[in-house]
Every structure is written in structure tokens, then in C-alpha cells.
Design a protein around this nucleic acid. Structure first.
Lengths: 110, 110
DNA sequence: TTATTATATTGCAATATTACGATATAGTTT
DNA sequence: AAACTATATCGTAATATTGCAATATAATAA
């Protein structure tokens, strides 16, 4: 065991989980925030900004890219990383849906 | 290594990451959705609903509780679990903030 | 071509997560 | 009290994550 049984859950649940998991590390939250803060979004900048070694950051960027939260395009010999609007909007909608549902319930129990 | 260097990030980044991580498993997303769907929110129901053994679900509930996404109160010999509004609202606000920032940028690069 | 710069990949050690059988705990019913 | 029900904890195997030094790759500059 150790691997999660993704087949038993809905596609949406898996999609949310995969993206949430990618944001389940402060460095990756920091990367997203940094990409939104600056206009130039080159990987090198992130290495200077975060207290982690270059290979580690490269790895975190790869994970964010794998789940579709960011995209990268080659820009000379550097790489321009940007947030992927669509993916982040999916998360935003999910949590807005959740909070809306909560308000409707207003503590039926507990 | 293997543990993340949480000291090097802001409290907010760590808070978001910890909650996102907790939702980084489809079973835990399913639990939150189930708690919002039903009125009775007893753990036993969740065991019947999800394709996981009782100890595994107990463990997932514990994790959600540890990061403050749900709360549980004793109800006879069962336990009533409910979503914790405050925590989920923090996530909702974070992602709304992120999407709002994205719209303002409108692809300056990439 | 040889350096230099920017990023990725490999390999590996330390640690964390996931899953569940077995068992413990605690309240409820008989 | 004894049996039952509901949930938690323990122990442990399988797997995943985190972090980084060393190294590879690829574009640019000299």
C-alpha cells in the first residue's frame, strides 16, 4: 500500500485532490504567489527568492507543471513560467461552491 | 531530508499549504463533500460511503481534524463530524484572491 | 570553439503518507 | 456484568515526497 486508490473516487474529486496536493507545500504556494506578484517570471528569479537549492525548485516547478497549475515557455536560454488560469479557476470555483453550501446549512449539527 | 522547511516560508503560506495538503487526497475531498451533502454527519456513514477500511477513514478524519478543516463532537457512542467553516473560508479567499490577481495581469508574459 | 549561464535530471538518504489487520477504548443495550 | 456498536490506535508493509550534490543539457556570449 502507500499509493492512494484513485480509481474509487470521481474524476472531479481526483482532479481537486491532485491540484490541492501540488499546493500542499509552502514552497509551491510561494511560487504561485511569486508568479502572480512579478511581471517577469523566469525560473532564476524564483531560485533567488526562495530558500531552496536550484534542483529542489526545479523539482517543485515540475510538479506544479505536471498538474497543470503553471506552464513554462522557453525564452532564450531561460524559461518563462506562468500560472495557468484555468486550473486555478477550477480550485477557486470548488472552494466557492463549498463555502456557499456551508452557508446554506448553517450548523444543522455540531 | 524529506521534511519540508516550513520555517523559511510565511505563516500564511504554511497555513494554505497545510490545508491544501490535507485536501490532497481524493478520500479527504470526498469526506468534505459528503459532510456538506448530508445532514447527519456520523463517521459510520462515511465508512459505508467510501471504498476504504474503517481504520483508514479514521486516519483521514484525524488528518482533516488536525489541520482544522473539520471538527468532531461526541454524540452518544458515535461521533458527529462537521466541516469547519472558518478554515474552508480561508482557502476560498486565497483562491479568489489568486484568480482576481490573474485577471488583472491578463498574460503579461507567456 | 570554449566559456558562461540557465535549467533539468540523476541518484540517494531522510522522512512522510497510505492502507489495513489486529486490537484497544468507550459508550449502549440487554 | 456481558454483549454489542462505534471509533481510535498500533504496528507494519508498500510507496511517495523532500532536499540536494553532482552532473547533464541547451542556449548564449566571448
Amino acid at each position: 500500500m502507500g499509493a492512494s486508490k484513485t480509481d474509487h473516487f470521481t474524476d472531479k474529486q481526483n482532479a481537486i485532490a491532485v491540484m490541492a496536493k501540488a499546493l500542499g507545500h509552502p514552497a509551491r504556494v510561494a511560487i504561485i504567489e511569486y508568479l502572480l506578484k512579478v511581471d517577469t517570471c523566469i525560473c532564476g528569479d524564483i531560485v533567488n527568492e526562495l530558500p531552496l537549492a536550484q534542483p529542489t525548485i526545479s523539482q517543485h516547478l515540475k510538479e506544479l507543471k505536471n498538474v497543470g497549475l503553471i506552464k513554462g515557455s522557453i525564452e532564450g536560454n531561460a524559461i518563462c513560467y506562468c500560472v495557468e488560469e484555468k486550473a486555478l479557476t477550477v480550485l477557486q470555483k470548488f472552494f466557492t461552491h463549498v463555502t456557499t453550501k456551508m452557508e446554506k446549512k448553517k450548523n444543522n449539527c455540531c
